[in-house]
């Protein structure tokens, strides 16, 4: 897979993002075709996420968009990690869309952001995934190498 292909596709996406983005999504930085940073907000009045902004980091491999990008939440003083049964407190997201099986090359940065928005919007549980503390302490793997087990079809 020539990395040019990823760069071309990302170039197109960036062009579109510069033109317009859906409400609640903002581009923070896109210096190259390897790592982009975006901010997302939840737009409805879900008390869990009201008035909060979350920072997302996208890492693209040379095989994008055939293979999924690596997407994690980033913790900063004013950018917490959203609380959600599928988001670990170190920012790693358990979402089948971002795994090899659930990913599809027609997805893009914008659609991933929107999926995450709706994943937060639909959540009512104020909790972390089971075994969060242990996972956060023990995990040294990168998100794409973690073998998630997608059991919950409600999100």
């Amino acid at each position: 897979m020539p990395p040019q292909f990823a760069a071309k596709r990302l170039g197109k996406e960036l062009q579109k993002i510069h033109n317009s983005l859906p409400p609640g999504i903002e581009l923070v930085s896109a210096e190259d075709f390897e790592e982009w940073v975006l901010d997302i907000k939840v737009l409805d009045n879900n008390p869990l996420y009201k008035d909060q902004t979350y920072r997302l980091k996208f890492k693209f491999g040379g095989s994008y968009p055939i293979e999924p990008p690596e997407v994690v939440f980033v913790k900063l003083p004013d950018r917490p990690i959203p609380i959600h049964p599928h988001i670990y407190s170190n920012g790693i997201i358990c979402l089948d869309l971002l795994g090899q099986q659930g990913w599809s090359p027609v997805q893009n940065v914008e659609s991933v952001c929107m999926s995450l928005q709706s994943m937060l919007t639909g959540n009512t549980k104020n909790e972390r995934p089971p075994g969060d503390e242990e996972f956060v302490r023990a995990n040294r793997l990168r998100p794409k190498d973690i073998d998630f087990y997608y059991h919950d079809n409600n999100v």
């Binding site: 292909f5 071309k8 596709r9 197109k12 996406e13 579109k16 968009p65 055939i66 090359p105 027609v106 893009n108």
Partner: peptide, 13 residues
């Protein structure tokens, strides 16, 4: 310009 319906959803061209 090209209508979006004529663009490949994978490469976006």
């Amino acid at each position: 310009g090209v209508d979006e319906t004529l663009q490949c959803p994978i490469c976006r061209t």
